[in-house]
Design a protein around this nucleic acid. Structure first.
Length: 471
RNA sequence: GGCGCCAUCGUCUAGCCUGGUCCAGGACACAAGCUUUUCAAGCUUGGUACAGGGGUUCAAAUCCCCUUGGCGCCA
């Protein structure tokens, strides 16, 4: 770790879509790195693409980053962290390059460029534009020009903190486009300028940027900027092993939030996508992650993210969560807003170990919140139980339970009394199964006694009666 | 097409740098069993992987080369 150097990392999402899981993972790794080394994490917004950028997406990005608990030390709260607010800076550099004849206008049309490319394709050459307008601009250009930069021919080497040495031949790049006009830089130029101006020490980003790195280095060298350290993270892949993109559907962080995944589970899961501590632990608190994280232990190969594992991690977090907190977080997932929190808490306690996501509480525990149960009467039957026996059992349940006072309707009491009855029947399911179904209307539920206690004497008796009437 | 990156169970991965302890370990998922009034949880058990081919070496998942494949970048 460079001791004398202040560590400053950044992410620069573009607000052309909601916060994407890949971007969030990159943000996480940057954040972990900064937090671990006492550095700063900078949030910059890459909104030069005015047509596709939308403030609503910027909002989504900010909110979801906050939801995940990834906080930044510098960012858009201050001026100058949106590219759109930095036009003057870019203009200065672009004009300077133009003036020094390091950059020039190219007036070739899209068609001409395409044609050049096709020919190179045929000849199996590297696709690159070699512009002759550098020295001889046309008298009256047909189209508006684009600003290009001709790199010196050399080999660019850089050390990737994850992959080791990487080398590129700049001759293969051609005359690279760096700006649309004097005030609109293209990606590679903007990044080089911003990273310099913001004093970024470590650029930690997705693997898809490896090929952009030499271009940025070239620009840095031209402009006399120091070179930051680079680390390229493996990509998060879709089921088909291709790069995750909008078309892969469920990848915005807000989707996970809506599904009832916990931010701590998301953090844990994303950290494990491309990183591991080297031993067999899988569950980490935020602080553990910060302590343990290191770029040396980041994988090189891309990772397909699979929901099953996330579900498992999320289930773990739910099970280990404080009941009070869990209840709090479940509330938004219950349709009814005027629920008694104490009551919900009791329900959540029963469903806690069954939930994989918060959103499941509604479906799992719906019978606690309605008086109308819908189930097939056949469901009441335990194994090959006859009709007569079933009515007998339901009658017995009604008799026994109605004989218990409201104040004695406790778990201990019910347990004692119902167990005794059940044991008389030999197979306890003969008593408990019909009771479960009568109370929950489901074949899978928490212990019927627990349900009974939460429901209370009155509702329990009502439900048993209803069950009896179904016959 | 050029260039670049990558390659261990279905998936996430340990091991690779510093060859032997690896006929490859863990986790998820799956299957079976235990527990049991259902489900879940928990516990136990099981199956499945070093892409292929050449080297180097007494010895290679580990080092080198090639091939193949995947992915990415390039308008």
């Amino acid at each position: 770790m460079p001791k004398n150097k202040t560590i400053r990392v950044r992410i620069a999402p573009s607000p052309t879509g909601p916060l994407h899981i890949g971007t969030a993972r990159t943000a996480l790794f940057n954040w972990l790195y900064a937090r671990k080394h006492g550095g700063s994490f900078v949030l910059r917004i890459e909104d030069t693409d005015l047509e596709r950028s939308d403030p609503k997406y910027e909002k989504d990005i900010i909110e979801n980053l906050k939801w995940l608990g990834i906080d930044w030390d510098e960012g858009i709260e201050q001026k100058g962290y949106r590219q759109s607010e930095r036009i003057d800076t870019y203009t200065t550099y672009i004009k300077m390059l133009l003036k020094k004849k390091k950059a020039f206008y190219c007036f070739h049309s899209q068609d001409e460029l395409e044609q050049e490319k096709q020919e190179q394709f045929k000849k199996k050459l590297a696709p690159r534009h070699l512009c002759d307008h550098s020295e001889n601009p046309p008298k009256s250009p047909a189209e508006k020009g684009i600003i290009r930069f001709r790199p010196p021919e050399k080999k660019i080497q850089f050390k990737d903190l994850i992959r080791g040495d990487i080398e590129f031949d700049t001759a293969l790049l051609g005359d690279m486009s760096i700006a649309r006009n004097e005030s609109t830089p293209l990606y590679n130029l903007a990044v080089a300028i911003d990273d310099f101006e913001m004093n970024i020490s470590h650029v930690i980003r997705g693997e898809d940027h490896i090929s952009n790195t030499p271009k940025q280095i070239l620009i840095q060298e031209e402009l006399g900027f120091p070179r930051p350290e680079y680390a390229h993270l493996p990509l998060i892949l879709g089921e088909d092993r291709s790069k995750l993109s909008k078309r892969h559907g469920t990848l915005s962080i807000s989707w996970y939030q809506d599904q009832g995944y916990l931010p701590e589970a998301m953090i844990n899961f994303m950290a494990l996508l491309g990183w591991n501590p080297g031993d067999e632990r899988e569950l980490f608190t935020r602080d553990e992650l910060i302590n343990e994280f290191s770029l040396e232990r980041v994988q090189k190969g891309g990772a397909i993210f699979n929901l099953d594992k996330l579900d498992w991690i999320n289930g773990n977090y739910i099970r280990n969560m404080d009941l009070e907190k869990l209840t709090e977080r479940c509330m938004p997932f219950l349709k009814d807003e005027n629920l008694d929190k104490e009551y919900v808490k009791k329900v959540v306690a029963l469903e806690q170990e069954r939930m994989k996501k918060l959103s499941e509480i509604g479906e799992l525990a719906d019978f606690f919140f309605t008086d109308v149960l819908e189930y097939d009467k056949e469901l009441l039957r335990w194994k090959d139980m006859k009709d007569e026996e079933l009515s007998e059992i339901l009658n017995k349940l009604e008799n026994v339970l109605s004989g218990i006072d409201e104040k004695d309707f406790t778990k201990e009491n019910l347990q004692k009394i119902l167990m005794a009855e059940a044991e008389k029947l030999g197979d306890k399911g003969r008593l408990f199964w019909p009771l479960r179904v009568a109370l929950s209307g489901k074949k899978a539920s928490p212990d019927p006694i627990d349900i009974a206690v939460v429901l209370g004497r009155k509702r329990v008796l009502k439900r048993i009666k209803e069950a009896r009437n179904r016959k």
